[in-house]
Design a binder for these strands. Structure first.
Lengths: 352, 352
DNA sequence: CATCAAATGAGTTGCGTACCTCAAAACACC
DNA sequence: GGTGTTTTGAGGTACGCAACTCATTTGATG
């Protein structure tokens, strides 16, 4: 009737007895300290494996003495999504201090490779773990590798630097996100044929470029009746996005779909609305898919102006980054399924 | 530049000094032990609040001595979704034993109120926490309340008993899930008009009834061109679902949408496919929305037979249940944002 | 066989809390 | 002022591990 998932638990003392050695030797093996014969190492490791021994994390944590320090290197600008991540980190304060974990926020100019690299280098030695919203650039990559070499655990957040030796990436697969957006636009447009507009921050940003790539992939292969217009680069700015899009909407009356890759949502919605006054509710005729659930996109979804938002959960990213850093620092395995950031499709009825 | 989220941390000894009392008195206050004057209690609590003191969880855990025991009461039948939850609990084995947490699976006949209540009563006293996939019935409610009165922490899993005094519910809002399904079917059907079929396990199951309720809500208010046919009760059985649906598809050639509320997915897909042979790809013309990502639904999504799956992440539910029980047992606050189970829309391109 | 380095054993201390005992102090009541 | 009760202080032990010291044993080498 009752099945136990967790066998009886031993202590280091038990392992020492099992292996026929002293506690000190087990300790040496466990922490890779020198001065143990290879043969003895094996015997101890055998005993550990045989009993599936796990050190008691609470005891280990307590015995460490000093608290762990983590740094979060975040963009200095007023990016709403990043602010949400910071807010969720703030909500963890009690959780963190109950575990004697110190988390510090470091503002950095994430769009300037040299500046970001310098900010990272400055952290060396002071922290057990570092989470960074990284730009993919050689000097940033080098800075990350230096941190890793200095013994720190490093995770990239939201935006990855796959070529570096960072231990983990906490964020979504942006190509898949773009594909999802494409599938949604195509499916929601339905039988109609026409043109599809894309508004992005810049095609130079890795995540935006990847999303556009995925979007086009799906549009090209699955929705031949829809033609994708050249990407508008709104630089995540409301006014600029609005102007560009307004002009495009004027030029192409047959636009049936719109994918907003980054921020600047306010401007995009405004452009749609303005057109609406002339063309009787165009905002609700154009299928509009964007990213992230913010106060604004939430409102637009409820109003029916936006049809779907592709979202990565900022709270999840904040907590996953902390948990991954902690697991790495403790040498624990990472629950990969738990830490994976999913691509959420948010429509009006499943707004979180 | 660097902002610290976690202030310096004190120990009980510091608090004792701050409050001008001894360690023993602080301990008495902290654990609601008798024998402390109200005035002194206040002084101690003031000192704790003033310094935002948090007991070191690792130290507390270590000092407890005995391990915590949790029981998961799960349906005894071969329900794939429940099996996934159990599998994810199994994956946590290392994590659990490193924290000296014992988790036991208890199989119970969840559909029989008296049996379930008896199973629950039998657990009383032996466990610090209990997670249960509960049927909403007076005798089950009473059993849950008894457990709570006996000092155990109780969370309902997947299926709630809101009228009980359970401490927490880990699962989705099924009405919202049904609404989401409705919105998806309606939107994906597009301009077409026609009929929509619903296959459910039974309308007697709370979660199924709630989903149907939400589905109809949306269909009625937003998609007047679609008419919903009476619910087919397939009892989560493949053969039965197939037969019922096949007959319905034959009778109504104008079915354009299908909502499968529970299991029996294999049969539903088969009925769609069979019709397809006669009517040239009907499986891809009928918008098919169902629940949960399993090996089967994953395949159907990739084949284009299913258009979307409403999913609640079983791994998340398993881990959330454990974390919530642990937080409750420790008297820690629950990170509600973290533990909330979201309604995931899964389409081919964002398959996890 | 003597010498020295490497390997190991035995032991200690401290982390911060829970939980316990016992004695002393403070207080209430008659 | 004496009695009894309540409140408080002081101290100890234990939890499992990390990190350390120092003495001892083992093994290799000349």
């Amino acid at each position: 009737m009752a099945e136990t998932l967790t066998p009886t638990v031993l202590t280091l003392k038990d392992i020492a007895r099992e292996a026929g050695v002293s506690l000190a030797t087990v300790d040496r093996v466990l922490h890779n300290r020198p001065g143990v014969r290879p043969d003895t190492v094996r015997r101890v490791k055998d005993a550990i494996a045989r009993n599936s021994f796990q050190p008691h994390v609470a005891a280990a944590e307590l015995a460490r003495g000093r608290a762990r320090r983590f740094a979060f290197v975040m963009p200095s600008g007023p990016n709403p999504f990043m602010q949400q991540i910071e807010a969720y980190l703030g909500e963890m304060a009690a959780w963190l201090s109950a575990r004697r974990l110190a988390v510090e926020l470091v503002a950095a100019d994430v769009f300037e490779p040299a500046a970001l690299a310098a900010s990272l280098e400055a952290l060396s030695g002071d922290y057990d773990g570092i989470a960074v919203v990284a730009l993919d650039h050689p000097s940033v990559r080098a800075a990350i590798n230096d941190l890793v070499d200095a013994g720190a655990k490093v995770v990239t957040l939201v935006s990855d630097v796959p070529s570096s030796r960072r231990h983990h990436y906490v964020g979504i697969d942006n190509i898949a996100a773009g594909r999802t957006a494409g599938a949604l636009v195509g499916r929601l447009v339905g039988q109609r044929s026409g043109k599809v507009a894309i508004v992005a921050g810049s095609q130079g940003l890795r995540d935006h470029a990847e999303r556009i790539f995925g979007f086009n992939q799906v549009m090209g292969s699955e929705f031949p009746d829809l033609s994708v217009l050249p990407v508008l680069e709104g630089r995540d700015d409301d006014d600029r996005s609005e102007q560009l899009l307004a002009r495009l909407l004027g030029k192409h009356p047959d636009i049936v779909g719109l994918y907003n890759v980054g921020a600047g949502t306010q401007g995009v919605a405004k452009a749609l609305n303005d057109k609406a006054s002339g063309a009787a509710g165009r905002d609700k005729q154009v299928v509009f898919v964007g990213h992230d659930v913010t106060a604004l996109t939430r409102r637009l979804l409820l109003q029916g102006v936006m049809d779907a938002a592709i979202s990565q959960n900022p709270g999840h990213e904040a907590r996953a980054a902390v948990r991954v850093l902690l697991a790495l620092a403790r040498g624990e395995p990472i629950l990969s399924e738990q830490e994976k950031i999913r691509i959420d499709i948010v429509m009006r009825d499943n707004l979180p």
